[in-house]
């Protein structure tokens, strides 16, 4: 169910990026898509009633000396969080680039409307 909502958010972003005529709105649409995917990744690692995936001394099994099975079964998956952190940094980079392109284009053309920015054709 939650995944479906995530997908809905993704589609809203895609719609916004494809349909809108304003450059800034296109950038916002792309960001919505980006966050929908990030949300999806975080939700993959989520576990109801999970514990933080930090290993300390209490988590070791006394007999075998290994990490206790109960810890493995109840801790949330830390990997998607690392993935999302990386993805957020990358999206920060592309966001900065897109915004600076928008500003530059506005300086040159005096408008954000992509239907009026059409020198390249054919």
């Amino acid at each position: 169910m939650l995944y479906a909502l995530c997908f809905l958010l993704f589609m809203i972003g895609l719609y916004c990026a494809v349909v809108k005529k304003n450059m800034v709105k296109i950038v916002v649409g792309i960001l919505i898509m980006e966050y929908a995917v990030n949300l999806f990744l975080v939700m993959l690692g989520f576990r109801t009633g999970g514990i933080a995936p930090i290993i300390d001394k209490t988590q070791f099994d006394a007999e075998t000396g290994r990490i206790a099975a109960s810890f493995i079964n109840s801790s949330v998956d830390p990997l998607p969080q690392a993935l999302v952190l990386t993805a957020i940094v990358i999206s920060l980079g592309s966001l900065a680039l897109m915004i600076s392109l928008c500003i530059r284009t506005y300086e040159k053309y005096g408008t954000f409307d992509i239907t009026e920015i059409r020198r390249l054709r054919g």
């Binding site: 592309s94 680039l97 392109l101």
Partner: peptide, 16 residues
């Protein structure tokens, strides 16, 4: 990034 975006990106493009 923040500085160059704030002053209408004098060198903004290349810092990302």
């Amino acid at each position: 990034v923040i500085y160059s975006l704030s002053i209408c990106c004098k060198a903004g493009e290349l810092d990302s």
